[in-house]
Every structure is written in C-alpha cells, then in structure tokens.
C-alpha cells in the first residue's frame, strides 16, 4: 500500500510537471497573432465580393436588371451588406456559368444566367422567386 502511494506521488509530480509544460504557451503573445487562416478567409471573402460586383457590371446583367426596374447602384450598395458566406455562394454560381460554347451551351448558359441574376436579386430583396432564399430584409 505504502509502495503504491509513493509511486502515485512520483507519477503525479511528473504529470503535474508535464501538464505545466504543455499549458505554458509556446509564446506569450501567441494568442494575439492574426492567424494565416483568418487572413486567407478574409481575402477570399474580398475576392468573392469583387467577382460579384464585376458580374453586376456586365452589360447583359445591367440590361436584365433594368428590365426588372431595378436600380443598379442600389443593388451594389446592398451587396456590401451581405455576409461573406452569402457573397461566396453567389460568386460560386457565377464561376459555374459556362463560358460560351455551342448552341446547347448557349441555352444552358442563358438559363443559368437568369438563375444567377434572380438569385442575387432575391437575396437582395428585389425579387422573390426562390423559396429557399432568405432575403436580407425580411
């Protein structure tokens, strides 16, 4: 019994020391560094925002929005108020738009194009086509 107690004492001293080593941070100011991961995520959000805005600058998008009676400047202002995740979703849709191609490609492209325009205007609360989209102002 005495032997066990003595052994436990040694072991627990060792454990306490080990835990102390692990818990002392590698570097005191470590917690205050901005992680690379954060930097990259923010850069990605920024890139997605730029690609959505440049999509909105395209001529056919401007025409499509005008036909709906939507003010392009107002659309851009509302894109700024979207969260990074929402903007990333729209940017993903834009990226998957086929670039030209044959006759079939054009038809698919046109349908997708309309889908993307309506997706954006839905999120921004100008239209209400897709039930799965929650508008910003509801």
């Amino acid at each position: 019994m005495h032997f066990i107690r003595r052994t436990i004492k040694h072991v627990s001293c060792f454990l306490a020391f080990a835990i102390f080593l692990v818990s002392v941070p590698f570097n005191q100011a470590d917690a205050a560094l901005v992680k690379t991961e954060t930097v990259l995520t923010m850069a990605q959000g920024q890139k997605a925002r730029e690609s959505v805005l440049s999509f909105l600058d395209r001529k056919e998008v401007q025409t499509a929005m005008k036909a709906q009676g939507i003010n392009a400047a107002e659309v851009k202002a509302r894109v700024d108020s979207l969260s990074d995740a929402e903007v990333a979703r729209i940017a993903g849709q834009i990226d998957s738009l086929p670039a030209g191609g044959g006759a079939l490609g054009t038809v698919v492209g046109a349908a997708l194009f309309i889908f993307v325009v309506l997706l954006i205007t839905d999120i921004l609360g100008f239209t209400d086509v897709f039930t799965f989209v929650k508008s910003q102002r509801r």
Binding site: Q28, A29, A32, L33, V34, T38
Partner: peptide, 13 residues
C-alpha cells in the same frame, strides 16, 4: 491592420 498587429508581438519580444 493584421500586418501591423502581427509585427508587434515579435518586436516586444
């Protein structure tokens, strides 16, 4: 801001 922020701890050390 992140660049300036991450510069600071190293300087301090």
């Amino acid at each position: 801001g992140s660049a300036f922020n991450n510069l600071a701890p190293g300087l301090s050390e």
